[in-house]
Write a protein that binds this DNA or RNA. Structure first.
Lengths: 310, 310
DNA sequence: TAAAGGTGAAAGCTTTTTCCTATCACAAGA
DNA sequence: TCTTGTGATAGGAAAAAGCTTTCACCTTTA
């Protein structure tokens, strides 16, 4: 990069002197002494190697080149002013485009109810939302691909701040023609031998369903893994097996109870927890705490009958 | 004007740090020490009152606002760079739009033969040409309305540099039906009582024709003054009187010798002189001397049979 | 596990830049 | 002749920019 030996101050001085056609008047406006102004304009002329002004006893006048360099000088000073103003505006509230990473089993069934209110509350804040599996979310947060993630737990990294927000119940879902569909609540023993479908291995959800299957002696189907909750819902609909689905998903996507039946297991409370997570080193961590509180309130307002607040 | 407390250097440092995501790498590119860069970025952040970077042990990353201020920062630095480049370009030759003032009795009959060659020779120089009576030209040069004037002499102002270029003969012009039209040369006594037309009083030309009329005992018509040389040529054509016209005007505008007759006066050499004039205080006076030489050469090439070089 | 190598920050010092006051040189106007 | 206006010059003080050295902390390698 070519060395720039001119300063914004010098450009301001030049524009002001051009305006007044008098070094004394300009110095007065700038609130510096006239010899200082004279010296700085001389330095600017020397740095550029050209004469910008013609000095006469009646004052100064711009040379043709001096006139020609006015627009670019004004552009530089105006751009700097815009930076200062944007920053001033920003100190009165957070600003910019934030990269928010979410789990695909959580984001689509919660964020549409949160983001509009968020945009209303923090008007200069934009979110660029991307879905990715939770393990990838944590990696992305660590390496700076995301500023913030909204993800199922667990997250075990001491460089990250984890703010748990709520617990989301998981329910057993079977086809309406399934023998278990005649019940609202079943005994754990009734799960024995049941074919259980789930989504891909790198999701926390997979591990949880695997654990549940082992616990209830059910049979976890590994040959027909789904790529999303929608996919496994379709498989249940096609009588390929049963599955566990999160409450927010059920709330959002399962309306036709003639096709799919939702059950609870007696004496069992099955949940997964969700949190907002950010890097400890972020200078915006104060704002992220505010955001976490906002999320918490919004989720409470919107999903209080579905989830358990933390 | 709001006080700008950020510098172009700081903006360059910020852009370079953003590019490298490492203060050490950026400092290396900028050829300053890392602690200096760190300190300057901190000062920039303090001046703006916002965090532009998040610091981690693996390096730095931009905050959302840090990202948002990149385009304006680049705009400021690029504008300054453009100033430096324009100035560098300019030191390899004069540049800008020059305000050239010319007399209406000279400019139209000379500049069309000079300006194209001038543009070819000085490619970054533009002329904004304006015609005005010579006394107004001098006033305009003194007050800065013109950078340069091309004018008939005399010019008597010690703050101005006057470079005489050539002498332009004046010829007597009569209608082709006039008794004097049968001659190519006449005696001074033949002018006695002749009606003489001229242009307005505030032109040097008026004073010269007035002086000639008195000298040859001719009758200067004051009731029918022309506003231009074209106007008095028409009056001569309409047999309202005779007139003196400059050689360049005759060369350019009088082709039909069946209508108007051009005479010389025996034993008399009648001229007016023309010069380029600029302010002594102009930092571009070196360039104006060059220009004067170029005018001189060009006039010699184009008008050598019409005028007398000085 | 220890050593090496990477990160940005803090501290103290030197150099450079920016700004000040006082004055000068020159001109125009009263 | 004096007053008032212009921009420039000279010398000094204060602020800013940059340096080297070192620190704290982490990761990687042998």
């Amino acid at each position: 990069m070519k060395d720039l030996n001119i300063s914004l101050k010098q450009l301001r001085y030049y524009l002001t002197a051009a305006k007044h056609k008098s070094l004394r008047q300009a110095a007065k406006e700038l609130q510096i002494s006239q010899p200082s102004l004279s010296a700085q304009l001389k330095l600017l002329e020397e740095a550029l190697g050209v004469a910008l002004f013609e000095r006469t006893r009646g004052g100064i006048m711009l040379t043709p080149l001096g006139k020609e360099l006015i627009p670019e000088s004004k552009a530089a000073v105006d751009a700097a002013q815009a930076i200062v103003e944007a920053a001033n505006y920003s100190t009165s509230g957070p600003s910019g485009t934030f990269k928010l990473g979410v789990s695909p089993s959580l984001g689509p069934y919660s964020l549409p109810w949160i983001l509009p209110a968020l945009r209303h509350e923090f008007t200069n804040v934009k979110f660029f939302v991307k879905e990715e599996a939770p393990l990838s979310l944590v990696d992305g947060l660590t390496d700076g691909s995301y500023d913030l993630i909204f993800t199922p737990l667990p997250v075990d990294d001491p460089t990250l701040t984890v703010v748990p927000l709520f617990r989301e119940p998981l329910f057993l879902v079977v086809n309406a023609n399934h023998p278990l569909a005649k019940y609202e609540h079943i005994e754990p023993s009734q799960l024995s031998g049941l074919d259980i479908l789930t989504i891909e291995e790198h999701h926390h959800f997979f591990k949880q369903v695997e654990s549940l299957s082992q616990r209830f002696n059910a049979h976890l189907l590994l040959d027909y893994e789904g790529s999303s909750l929608d996919a496994i819902r379709q498989m249940v609909y096609m009588e390929m097996g049963a599955t566990f689905l999160p409450a927010l998903y059920i709330r959002s996507e399962i309306r036709d109870r003639d096709e799919l039946h939702v059950l609870t297991i007696k004496g069992e409370s099955i949940y997964r927890s969700h949190a907002l997570v950010w890097r400890n080193s972020s200078p915006l961590r104060g704002f992220y705490r505010e955001l976490a509180e906002f999320f918490h309130l919004r989720i409470k307002e919107e999903f209080d009958e579905t989830v358990i607040m933390m």
